[in-house]
Amino acid sequence: MKLTNEDVQEILALLDATKFDVLRLQTERFKLTLRRQSAGEQGTSEWSQESESLAMPQILTPVDTPPPDANSSPSQTQSATSGTSSESASAAGDDSSTIAIRTSLPGTFYRAPRPGDPAFVEIGSVVREDTVIGIIETMKLMNAIHAGASGTIAEILIPNAHFAEQGSILMRIKPDPS
């Protein structure tokens, strides 16, 4: 038995007619808490609901194919990327002659406007504060990443189409002498 929205509506209809203000229900499969927020006439009380499905997913695994994470490149990408970002994070303190370009959002890093296009920048590219150096795709939104400083791209830490953790360093800039 699983709990549907209709079940909850029926429970509420019953509760509405009672003087009880809180209902807690837990089975192996779900947890439900209903709280009366304000009483109205019969059937018009306002409630709040907390519910949780507790059932373990029943995973079907095809017998003749390797488990999903064994041969999928993006998973490897992801772990490789998080390795890179922690490395670069530790390197951040060491390297005071360059400026780090970080992403404030986690997401997929794209170095070119579209597949096959030349990258926005390469090592040695001269950039200004507002130069777009790449795109981070987070929750289906494309966010342009700006250099943030003027200078020359000295290092590219996250490769194209790889996942970048929040706050990780994408590139380093050797700033213009001031």
């Binding site: 509405d16 306002e46 709040s48 949780e52 997401g107 929750m139 289906k140």
Partner: peptide
């Protein structure tokens, strides 16, 4: 934390519950 309104004439369609992930890969 995920507490939703409930009651007559109220419906909430969601895949959220305490502990649920909102991954960066999909819509918001």
């Amino acid at each position: 934390k995920f507490i939703q309104p409930a009651g007559r004439d109220i419906r909430v369609d969601t895949h959220m519950q305490p502990g649920a992930a909102v991954p960066p890969y999909y819509d918001s």
